[in-house]
């Protein structure tokens, strides 16, 4: 196990280098000069050159990259062009909100998705099953900004249960979490359903039945853990979709998280902030999926890492 973890950490490092390289090149490929953005339309060539050399943008690209990465290794993600704060600090400020949002929506999506997935599987080919399938399809296919607006209109504007926008503690995260979690719930419900249907056909379920186990035992003691193996994979992968979804959701609900930060950073060509955020999100994604792989060993004793 320790050697496995070491291997995983090593590949994690390589992946992050790949991500950083990709993001770095992409940001230099897209049109729009951050220096011109900062100095405005009437900047003199001298001031442009001066700022470029101050930001290190006059050096060749490989040099810029190496310089950037040297900082990253020491935990320095650079300084925002726009605010002048350290990117690390910006992330630290924004992260708690996005983290809460991610945790709540994963929780909502998993619990709700697994629950209705089980119901659909148990009531296969009935109206209830079809209803669950339709709801999950809507959850998956409806754009999150639309769901967000719908929820705001109904629960915040008309019923007044929740704040319309802005961050005022847990209460203000409920609608965003539902918005973000619905797609996850839909995917998880579908996966749970098909996985459960697969498991209840297995011989060991018949054995449990022959032992006199009731339906509740059959589902929760004998099927669920086996059925959760592919679902866990999906939850890990959904985390990536969640990070992407957070960008839209945080913007619609005006939450000061990493998602809304990245939107404004892209708009202002704040390269260090964008780079830092993407790198950090990739890091989170890899860590979450490493955790998922470790959870497998708890779910299925046949899986062992050497």
């Amino acid at each position: 196990m320790p050697s496995y973890l070491l291997k995983r950490l090593l590949t994690m490092g390589i992946t992050l280098i790949g991500v950083s390289l990709l993001v770095f090149m992409m940001l230099h490929l897209i049109p729009g000069d951050p220096v011109r953005y900062i100095l405005g339309d009437f900047a003199t060539p001298e001031s442009i050159a001066e700022l470029e050399s101050r930001l290190g943008l006059d050096k060749p690209l490989p040099m810029q990259y190496l310089h950037y990465m040297a900082g990253v290794i020491q935990g320095d993600l650079g300084t925002s062009y726009v605010t002048g704060y350290a990117v690390m600090e910006e992330i630290a400020n924004r992260f708690p909100i996005t983290a809460q949002l991610a945790v709540y929506s994963i929780l909502f999506g998993s619990v709700f998705g697994i629950l209705i997935g089980i119901i659909a599987a148990m009531k296969q080919n009935t109206i209830l099953d079809q209803l669950v399938m339709v709801i999950s399809l809507i959850g998956i296919s409806a754009p999150s900004f639309w769901i967000a607006l719908f929820l705001i209109l109904l629960f915040a504007y008309h019923l007044g249960f929740f704040p319309i926008s802005g961050y005022k503690g847990f209460y203000s995260l409920i609608l965003p979490s539902i918005t973000l979690g619905l797609g996850t719930a839909g995917n998880i419900a579908r996966m749970t359903r098909s996985s459960m249907l697969e498991v209840i056909k297995q011989d060991y379920i018949r054995t449990a039945q022959a032992k006199g186990a009731n339906l509740y035992r059959l589902i929760f003691q004998h099927s669920l853990q086996n059925a959760m193996i592919p679902v866990t994979t999906l939850i890990g992968l959904q985390f990536g979709a969640l990070m992407a979804g957070a960008v839209v959701t945080e913007t619609v609900f005006a939450l000061p998280g990493m998602g809304s930060l990245i939107v404004s950073a892209i708009a202002t060509r704040d390269i260090p902030t964008v780079q830092g955020l993407i790198l950090f999100m990739a890091f989170l994604f890899i860590v979450v999926n490493l955790l998922v792989d470790l959870i497998y060993t708890k779910l299925d004793p046949r899986i062992r890492y050497e």
Binding site: Q202, D203, Y204, R206, T207, A208, A210, K211, H222, Q225, N226, L299, D300, P301, R302
Partner: peptide
């Protein structure tokens, strides 16, 4: 009670 043909698949792999 009952025993089955396939001992390989008749026991729950996770218990």
């Amino acid at each position: 009670s009952m025993i089955f043909q396939e001992p390989m698949t008749s026991l729950n792999p996770v218990h």
